[in-house]
Design a protein around this nucleic acid. Structure first.
Lengths: 181, 181
DNA sequence: ACGGGATATTTCGCATGCGAAACTTCTCCC
DNA sequence: GGGAGAAGTTTCGCATGCGAAATATCCCGT
């Protein structure tokens, strides 16, 4: 995999980025993709023993921990979009695991909570989402975990900021469009 | 994640299962999911400006860097399954970006490489996959990146080992089935 | 040479996952 | 209080993403 010269016309070395740093970055990105993908796959496979999919386990465990959640809150906690979670909730409702209920105060909101059957199943399931990854993390010593958590926290903040900026720009461009035209 | 067990306090469990560690682990998993998901989303959006999807950019950039790859090699490098990449290659072939060619020596293998059009498009595209995440990583200092890379490397090895073990068990169980039954 | 197992790819059905548009309900401002 | 716009959810069409089964090819022992 040691590629000395990756296509020079790409974003090879932007600013102060030494080839050194780029190499580190490439490996880190690779590792993140690998860890996420592989963990997801294993979770999915474990879930299958209970007749569930990966995301369904995530929802079950999330609703077990907290009482009920609006569809939007659930989406946000899962890092997924509403339109995605609607489908997951549909299938879980079909299977009798969760139920939808309109909020009385604000009838736009849909509250989702476990049925008795869903709660029973949730208590049987030993795995959390991303179980393998969690197991690997337990093998790290205290200091490394601390360090990792701190660095990832900074990265998350950074990414959130970049996304925020991008969305703001987008919104402004849309406002200009709707205004000037 | 909110352990149902009543306050077992921060009693240091021998196996490293203190509430302290669990909290760290939960946050780390959260962060990984967030970073992966959000980066993927941004890449997809950037790709759209070129009439491409996220994975298509990944394939384009991968084939640009290396000459041609078998479908299996491509899958492995993308952390995806063959059946997934078959579909991606289908659509890229339909759009004239890549072409398939049977290997002459081993006719089971399908070599995939860029067409002229694909190569031209690849050279126009400034983004790598997971671009935002890469940008965030550049904001870290050298030491942190080094540390992160080292820890993720260990985690990847750990996960790979767990997966390997699991697959071996599965294979043995299958062998017993086919044999002893 | 030939037959069974191994390897590479594709096909099929299903579950995400997403953005854009449609709907419903709420809110705020005149 | 009424209408414009915001907020929450769903619908729709499309692209992953996967496992299991089907196909095609190779390889190895006899």
């Amino acid at each position: 995999m040691t590629n000395p010269e990756p296509s020079s016309d790409a974003v090879a070395t932007p600013k102060g980025g030494s080839a050194h740093a780029d190499e580190d970055i490439a490996r880190i990105v690779e590792a993140i993709v690998y860890l996420y993908t592989e963990s997801r796959r294993v979770t999915k496979e474990l879930a299958r023993a209970f007749g569930l999919t990966g995301p369904q386990v995530t929802v079950l465990k999330m609703l077990e921990g907290i009482g009920g959640l609006s569809l939007s809150d659930l989406s946000a906690r899962m890092s997924a979009r509403n339109s995605t979670v609607t489908g997951i909730a549909d299938r879980m409702e079909r299977d009798g695991l969760v139920e939808r209920k309109r909020d009385e105060d604000d009838r736009r909101i849909v509250r989702i909570r476990l049925t008795d059957e869903g709660r029973a199943l949730a208590s049987e399931i030993p795995v959390e989402s991303m179980e393998v990854f969690g197991a690997a993390l337990r093998a790290l010593d205290h200091e490394e975990r601390r360090s990792l958590r701190r660095i990832l926290r900074r990265l998350s903040d950074q990414v959130a900021e970049l996304v925020e900026t991008k969305e703001t720009e987008l919104r402004q461009r849309q406002a200009e469009q709707g205004d000037g035209a």
